[in-house]
Design a protein around this nucleic acid. Structure first.
Length: 588
RNA sequence: GCGCCUGUAGCUCAGGGGACAGAGCAACGGAUUCCUAAUCCGUGUGUCGCAGGUUCGAUUCCUGCCAGGCGCACCA
């Protein structure tokens, strides 16, 4: 996988993962390298690579392990560490440098770290954490992509929230992002739906509850098709007619699509997710012939069992089907066409497909065909897979009808939030709004906190638990800060952040300083979970601080510095939650 | 059968080759004349699936095996 140009500047193309700290920590890191480089037989890069963060803050902020030197010098590593500690010149950046066993530990100047961190957060505000590594580059993100005429289940939530978070992460890195909702609005399922509707359809029911009703028809089709396999053939025939432009088929399709899309947009509004394009599979219908011709001209196609395929046996992959026996196209055909179109349209530096891991093979095939076609940019296409959502009984299945509707989950979570508000903060204004932000935030967060590749078991108790590592926990910390800031009637004319040196304050500051690093790493690995974990850590650190260190009651100099500190925490919580697509109410 | 993914505390999961492997939940015990108790503090359990290998050092990298999940041509 080719690294993005921006990351090369950031030292991310070194093959081996480079351990680096935040922007601020980077200043200190450079100083460590500067201090050590003349004392040891290692080049600066190797030295920087070996620097690590001790497991415990009592062991300092940086550690240099002396094992490699021990081998080179044929000496005891602990003796080397002790020797270096004595020989090192002093530095304003560090309060202490001491040997501990085979490690040389560096302790940052707390005052300096506190000052740089808090002051830049307050100066940069919403922009804190943002960078420009992606400036001038476009990244296409294909996400959500629900199937028309099927309900929006909790399974679709994953693609939607992961994609949305990646969008915001890359935007924060300066990339020009294009979010595409590649709607599943074409394919054999429409043949099925048309058959079902023509046989059993009820206009009034369709009008009233389009998705639910279309879903019923879809489930019924599969139930009946088990007894009567001929239905499947009939469905395929109708889809072929649709592709050939049959008026009746087209009219039904259009209706199903319009009704479904209207419902999806309601959910996107609840989630506050937006797209730059809703060009789904059907959009490419007119271009399919041209795309297939392009592949044929490159001599990649062949006929097998009556179908038009691209043989991929050289790549150790099953063939990619472009046309079925009846001439109708498939998912892969339309995806190939879409990829080519998007490259022409956006000239992307990278294209992400946020699609379930169960489709890994499809993407391997897709990218293989693009490579065979000679497109360099095939290397810039990335499948960002995620695990399935499970019920105890097994995978959720649209066909079997064992699906949990996302809207129900969002509604229940919001209601629970409202209940808790009524109990804990009855005087709160705009309860509805806050309940929605908290409830929906909890659902989004519950998804993003887990590494995306893991399967998730759907559990109502867990979705509706608002304690511990959850969005409400983070939002609550934020609301508390806002409350303190409100009560501090006057904002200090000046503050001295170098006073923030106690353990709780420093713990918070170290986390604050790491924020930009988290953004880079989350974007690089396509893992919003890193941001979710970070934001929980920061909230937890704040909560510890909150319980041990008074702000408003502190004597003036300390009070002013702490007000600045918590305002910085507030800002970073807001920025972090934003990257996850979650709101931070000021009261809850 | 082949391919991909996963396997860490009772449960759900973090862990960027290094110093005693960490959270949340659940359980129990504490904290509210004090900035929102959706909070905080304390109490403890691990053959890091198993077996090899690379390394000064492996939960982390490699190989094999075991278990679970997903996928493997006319669905998406």
């Amino acid at each position: 996988m080719k690294p993005l140009a921006g990351w090369i500047l950031f030292g991310y193309n070194k093959g081996k993962k480079e351990k680096r700290g935040s922007f601020f920590m980077q200043i200190f890191r450079k100083e460590v390298v500067g201090l050590l480089k003349d004392l040891i037989e290692m080049d600066e890069h190797e030295l920087a690579m070996d620097l690590e963060t001790p497991p415990n803050p009592e062991m300092g902020d940086f550690a240099f392990p002396c094992f490699k030197l021990a081998k080179k010098r044929r000496q005891n590593p602990a003796a080397i560490a002790a020797d270096l500690a004595v020989k090192l010149p002093g530095s304003d950046y560090f309060e202490r440098i001491e040997a501990k066993g085979p490690y040389l530990n560096f302790f940052c100047n707390r005052r300096l770290l506190a000052k740089t961190t808090v002051e830049s957060i307050l100066a940069q505000g919403k922009a804190y954490g943002q960078q420009e590594v992606g400036k001038g580059q476009t990244i296409v993100i294909d996400f959500s992509a629900p199937n028309i005429a099927k309900p929006f289940g909790v399974g679709h939530l994953r693609s939607t929230v992961i994609g949305n978070s990646l969008y915001r992460l890359y935007e924060a890195l300066g990339y020009n992002c294009v979010g595409i909702n590649h709607l599943g609005d074409w394919g054999t399922q429409f043949g099925k739906l048309i058959v079902a509707y023509l046989r059993w359809g009820d206009e009034q029911k369709l009008e009233k509850e389009p998705i639910t009703y279309l879903y019923e028809l879809y489930v019924r089709f599969h139930r009946e098709a088990e007894k009567d396999p001929q239905l499947e053939d009939e469905a395929r025939a109708w889809f072929k007619k649709l592709e050939d432009g049959d008026a009746q088929a087209k009219a039904l399709w259009q209706r199903f699509r319009d009704l479904s899309l209207a419902e999806f947009k309601r959910i996107y509004k609840l989630l506050e997710v937006e797209f730059d394009s809703y060009q789904g599979e059907s959009f490419y219908n007119e271009m399919l012939d041209e795309a297939i011709k392009l592949i044929e001209e490159k001599g990649l196609t062949s006929i097998s069992e009556g179908a038009l395929i691209v043989d991929l046996s050289e790549e150790n992959l099953p063939p990619c089907l472009l046309r079925k026996q009846d001439g109708a196209t498939l998912y892969a055909t339309r995806d190939l066409c879409a990829a080519i179109y998007r490259q022409r349209q956006y000239n992307f530096a990278k294209m992400l497909y946020v699609v379930g891991a169960d489709q890994s093979l499809h993407f391997q095939q897709l990218f293989a065909v693009l490579r065979k076609m000679g497109y360099q940019w095939a290397e810039d296409c990335v499948h960002v897979p995620f695990g399935l959502i499970y019920y105890k009984e097994g995978k959720m299945s649209t066909r079997r009808g064992t699906l949990v509707f996302l809207e129900d989950v969002l509604t229940k979570a919001t209601e629970l939030a409202k209940e808790i508000i009524r109990e804990k903060n009855p005087g709160l204004k705009n309860k509805e709004d806050v309940a929605r932000q908290v409830g929906i935030g909890a659902v989004i967060f519950g998804d993003l906190i887990n590494d995306r590749i893991k399967n998730i078991e759907f559990d109502w108790d867990k979705v509706l638990d608002f304690t511990g590592e959850t969005a409400p926990y983070v939002q609550y910390a934020h609301a508390r800060i806002c409350s303190i800031l409100r009560k501090a009637d006057s904002w200090p004319a000046s503050y001295d952040a170098t006073l923030l040196t106690n353990e709780e304050e420093q713990h918070v500051i170290r986390l604050l300083a790491r924020f930009s690093d988290v953004i880079i790493r989350a974007a690089q690995t396509y893992k919003p979970s890193l941001v979710a974990r970070y934001v929980v850590d920061l909230a937890a650190a704040f909560n510890s601080f909150y319980h041990r260190c008074p702000v408003l009651q502190a004597e003036e100099a300390s009070r002013n510095a702490r007000l600045a500190l918590i305002d910085a925490v507030r800002q970073v919580l807001v920025n972090g939650l934003y990257l996850l697509g979650i709101n931070a109410p000021e009261e809850m």
